[in-house]
């Protein structure tokens, strides 16, 4: 494990948990990113303002982190752009179909002891492991 960083991971995770708790305390909503973003795309979603401002905060901080700490986006590996586009399509379709992603099911759902979220989390972790195994070890690192 050449790049094992448990301490920043733990602290970063705690901050994610805190942010989700803040949204629950102020708006009573689940901080599921795919849900917030997907609902904003849909016509006729109620309560658009808090979704917009949450995602605006997310994006503004992304820009600020880029300016102050660009290493946060440094990646020793990246998929090719066509594969990345395909990955985005699948993630977008899948998270809408399954009502959530790593934040909504993984963090918020598991914290609520939701059985649906447990099933979803075990499923996407499983197919995530399987996909990387196939791409890296069976196809020999095809990008």
């Amino acid at each position: 494990m050449h790049d094992f960083t448990p301490i920043p991971a733990l602290i970063g995770g705690a901050i994610i948990g805190l942010a989700a708790s803040l949204l629950l305390l102020t708006h009573g909503k689940v901080a599921g990113i795919s849900g917030l973003y997907g609902s904003l795309l849909r016509q006729g979603t109620s309560d658009r303002a808090f979704r917009f401002w949450f995602l605006a905060g997310l994006a503004a901080m992304g820009m600020l982190v880029r300016l102050t700490w660009p290493a946060a986006f440094a990646s020793a590996w990246s998929a090719s752009l066509p594969v990345t586009l395909l990955a985005g399509l699948i993630v977008g379709f899948g998270t809408q179909l399954g009502n959530g992603c790593t934040s909504g099911h993984g963090v918020c759902g598991l914290s609520r002891l939701s059985v649906r979220s447990l099933v979803a989390t075990l499923t996407f972790m499983g197919t995530g492991f399987a996909t990387v195994f196939v791409v890296r070890h069976l196809l020999g690192g095809a990008r």
């Binding site: 998929a79 594969v83 990345t84 993630v91 899948g94 179909l97 979803a120 499923t123 996407f124 197919t127």
Partner: peptide, 14 residues
Amino acid sequence: GAALFGVGWGLGGY
């Protein structure tokens, strides 16, 4: 949906 999400997550890393 979750199964598809995991595939896309593994392919792109996002």
